[in-house]
């Protein structure tokens, strides 16, 4: 339960659900892999709801952007879950690893402050995909405009397919789409991802419910621990500098890339 509290904290700060951290730990502890994945999905929902309550209230997570992107990711998730039997997920592991690697294109910006996009495409403007929030760490109001709404939607559609096919939350993928395609500030990217990821995980949990893989004695401590961690993380994020959040994100992304490549290679 203590480890899950830490995972909930990390997940809420970085915008990743935390399933990719919990699952291998549970497997190491002797839990059957499918049960571990099913319980990790419940943990994602706890992380998402526990932290998003603070992020939405502080106006860091952008509800309008989230609703627009959810449209693509949920459609992707349902298609992904449907085509799992037709297409081998092996290619998806490699694609996932390659896409996560694009995060490193922005690594040189870690030391620089976020520069909002001046231009905004027609669709983003029409949907009013913009916002502002007060950053406590930098003690200033950050104003931003999302760009490339449809490309962002396409990215979220693929994230949804990956989530549906691989039974993951694909939080790292979502944060990468938010930052690299939509040009959202780091905190808006991770908090909006957190907001969305609970819904993607809910669709996945439904599958595990049907398969009878949800173990109450396993889910209870995991959900309780991640909920506590996420509530704490939700109150900490705005006081932490973007730079440290990005360093934390990159550390987890490196771990995820290695995991994805490993899974892809052993599945060949």
């Amino acid at each position: 339960m203590l480890i899950c509290t830490l995972v909930g904290l990390l997940g809420s700060l970085t915008g990743l659900g935390g399933a990719s951290i919990i699952t291998p730990l549970l497997v190491l502890a002797g839990v059957p892999v499918k049960e571990a994945i099913a319980s990790a999905m419940v943990a994602i929902i706890a992380t998402s709801s526990g932290s998003a309550s603070s992020y939405v209230k502080a106006r860091i997570a952008n509800v309008n952007i989230a609703m627009f992107l959810e449209m693509f990711t949920i459609t992707g998730a349902i298609i992904g879950a449907t085509i799992t039997t037709v297409i081998s997920p092996v290619l998806l592991y490699f694609f996932f690893a390659a896409f996560l690697s694009t995060s490193f294109l922005r690594i040189r910006h870690i030391r620089k402050e976020f520069v909002p996009s001046e231009k905004q495409d027609r669709v983003s403007r029409w949907l009013n995909l913009q916002g502002s929030y007060y950053d406590e760490a930098h003690q200033k109001t950050v104003t931003y405009k999302a760009n490339h709404a449809l490309w962002g939607g396409a990215g979220m559609f693929i994230a949804g397919i990956a989530a549906g096919m691989l039974g993951i939350g694909a939080g790292a993928f979502k944060v990468t789409v938010h930052e690299n395609i939509l040009h959202l500030p780091p905190k808006v990217s991770s908090t909006t991802s957190n907001f969305i990821i609970g819904m993607t995980a809910l669709a996945a949990v439904s599958v595990y419910l049907f398969s009878g893989l949800l173990n109450l004695t396993l889910m209870a401590p995991i959900a309780a621990g991640t909920t506590v961690g996420a509530i704490v993380g939700g109150r900490l994020l705005n006081r932490i500098h973007d730079r440290w959040l990005q360093v934390l994100f990159f550390a987890i992304v490196i771990y995820l890339i290695i995991t994805m490549l490993y899974k892809g290679i052993i599945s060949l």
């Binding site: 309550s53 209230k57 007060y134 909920t227």
Partner: peptide, 29 residues
Amino acid sequence: MKPPQKPDGQSKMENAISYLLIGGVLLCL
């Protein structure tokens, strides 16, 4: 410092979502 002001309806919705989420996770806990 307070977060920047938004249109009233949007703020109400964000507050309602925030209370729903925290209420849900606390009851669950």
